[in-house]
């Protein structure tokens, strides 16, 4: 387990906190699922009990491990003269300190955390505002899809999204919306004849 520790120790502390929270969540899920299996017959419950029991134990281990790491990180941060590293700051500092950049066994090179094209990077650095915006658009899309069906949602959402999130011209958005609508209708309704979300009113 030396490898992940090495890696974790130089992550921002939000990562360690998240590991604890997610770990606890998994503990709760497995615990609930284990109890849920109590009423079932032996055959039906055997596999669930094994799976959830194992899951519960491993998740608990993970929580303990992340807590330990968190505590160690705090201690290191509180202590201004860390004994282990002569080459500068250690602990919850983003970015790799030179001393930590020792080649890791089966792990990864240090650059993987700072590559700008990584999904991880985008998710970590996008601000709260961007997150709110993106999630709101996605929510709107699926609610609209549920309520109004595909053939309304596709052009309408394309139009609104490109106009307000993409900042395109009105004309561009209108053309895009019409093309999307027509192509979808032609492909799914006329050519393939495959059911698509109909919406609440078109049943």
């Amino acid at each position: 387990m030396a490898v992940p520790e090495q890696h974790e120790s130089r992550r921002p502390s939000t990562g360690a906190v998240a590991d604890v929270v997610l770990g606890l969540f998994m503990v709760a899920v497995f615990g609930w699922a284990f109890l849920e299996a109590a009423d079932w017959s032996f055959k039906a419950a055997l596999f669930p009990r094994i799976v959830t029991g194992l899951g519960f134990t491993v998740a608990l281990l993970q929580v303990v491990q992340s807590l330990l790491r968190l505590a160690r990180g705090r201690r290191a941060a509180a202590d201004p003269t860390p004994a282990t590293s002569p080459a500068g700051p250690i602990g919850p500092v983003p970015g790799a300190a030179p001393a930590e950049a020792v080649p890791q066994a089966a792990g990864t090179t240090s650059e993987d955390d700072v590559n700008e094209d990584d999904v991880e990077y985008v998710f970590q650095t996008a601000g709260a505002r961007r997150w709110t915006e993106a999630v709101a658009w996605v929510t709107a899309f699926f609610v609209l899809l549920y309520v109004a069906g595909l053939f309304v949602t596709a052009p309408l959402f394309s139009f609104l999204y490109l106009r307000f999130a993409g900042r395109r011209t009105w004309v561009f958005c209108a053309i895009y919306a019409v093309v999307v609508g027509v192509v979808l209708y032609a492909a799914f309704e006329l050519a393939l004849g495959i059911p698509v979300p109909p919406g609440l009113f078109l049943d």
Binding site: E189, L190, L202, D203
Partner: peptide, 15 residues
């Protein structure tokens, strides 16, 4: 759910 496939029609487009 009346969006399903009138497949006689789809057959023609296939042809």
């Amino acid at each position: 759910m009346n969006t399903a496939m009138p497949y006689r029609r789809s057959l023609r487009s296939l042809i």
